[in-house]
Design a protein around this nucleic acid. Structure first.
Lengths: 106, 106
DNA sequence: ACGAACCGTAAGCTACGACTTACCAAGCCG
DNA sequence: CGGCTTGGTAAGTCGTAGCTTACGGTTCGT
């Protein structure tokens, strides 16, 4: 379940979420700290963080009353793997097209 | 030229668009051909292709009355570069956190 | 040259997602 | 122990992205 919402690309599709993700990537950040650097309210940041966490892109850690978020290397690795796959298929298709230049296989 | 952002991620955020992108990645495809393999109409595919093309992820080539689309390696490379940057920053932040054990940045 | 096939664009409707305010739970500090 | 701070959740509003049908332009085939 939550299968559709668990994809990193879908999560990073939103520019605000991407901004949050980039801020978190620079180091562990608390929710209020993020909200202070963004033009949106704290609950909005919380919701975005929930989506990012659900997508496996960030992890959270409770420290006192604050909650520190940091990027999850596994999530980023998954995205890289996906792009590598597409990249590979595109290159293979291109190579095949170069070989079969003369005519079209019908 | 620098006008279009790296919203390649934004473009791939939509699952339908991602499906189109993956189909195109397997080789040059025409619009009607894509529409035939998808549960949406041909105009919808056209609109998605426009977004992908605007994001620099695909390129189009007019062949007779058909229009072949294929992936743009530069677009994929840009996405990979972005992820690499985030990855690098995350690793640097983690290394810094390990070295500077008990402090936290403002 | 006429018809058919392919594609892009316009206009419009619907649905989802992003944001806000309000409220409540949990942990620190006086 | 009481107040203050921090965060997550609920309910509601509003914008916009995505899809459809309808139309016009362009090219190939006969």
């Amino acid at each position: 379940m939550a299968t559709y919402r668990t994809d990193g690309l879908g999560a990073l599709g939103d520019p605000t979420r991407r901004a949050i993700f980039e801020l978190v990537a620079t180091g562990p950040k608390a929710v209020g700290e993020l909200a202070r650097e963004l033009p949106i309210s704290r609950p909005a940041v919380s919701q975005h963080l929930k989506v990012l966490k659900d997508a496996g892109l960030v992890v959270d850690e409770a420290v006192g009353t604050r909650r520190l978020y940091r990027v999850d290397p596994n999530g980023v690795a998954a995205l890289r793997a996906y792009l590598d796959l597409v990249w590979d298929r595109a290159l293979a298709a291109f190579a095949a097209a170069v070989e079969n230049t003369p005519e079209e296989p019908s």
